[in-house]
Amino acid sequence: MSTDTPDASASDGPSRSELQAQLDDLQEELNDLQSEVDDGGPKKMVIVATKGTLDMAYPPLILASTAAAFGWDVTVFHTFWALDVLHEEQSKDLKLSAVGNPSMPMPNAIAAMPFMDSMATKMMKRKLDEEGTATVEELIDMGLDQGVEFQACQMTIDLLDYDEDAFYDGVTVGVGAATALQDMADADIQLLV
């Protein structure tokens, strides 16, 4: 006789009622997990912004304010040169680099000339204005209004000698890599820009 034939009268192995109890437990656990997924609240997005040039200031800010319009919880952690984007004065004076930018219609040798960065910056600012694109300042204000959390990395504030009072009102300081990682672990979407 085969040994794997089901045998209700077998004394070893779980009884029917024990199996039923196990099944009920599993069902309950599944329901809990399901409701956790359903009631997880809004999606969460964390962007780590590292760049401080005029062109690279835009992607994190545009994604942040759009995600906030989706009703998501948004945190943008600014580190290194991206601190300029949160700096009230510097953010109005971000520059575009003509050198090392393959999209620039000029060779690097010419792009490296002293006036080229300011010319490229002026051109891009004019283009942004013509296209009705918001300024960096407007995007920061829009983000803050929508509840976006803009964080300034404390380590780089100290390293680059920034004055904490010079950031926009509402910017969070006193946070570091561990805070960013913790936020990212809880987030649905994590981006490094």
């Binding site: 304010s65 759009t66 319009a69 694109t133």
Partner: peptide, 14 residues
């Protein structure tokens, strides 16, 4: 009118 991304979406939400 005249506003570029992301303003139409953000203002619509508001």
């Amino acid at each position: 009118k005249g506003a570029g991304c992301p303003i139409p979406v953000v203002k619509t939400k508001q």
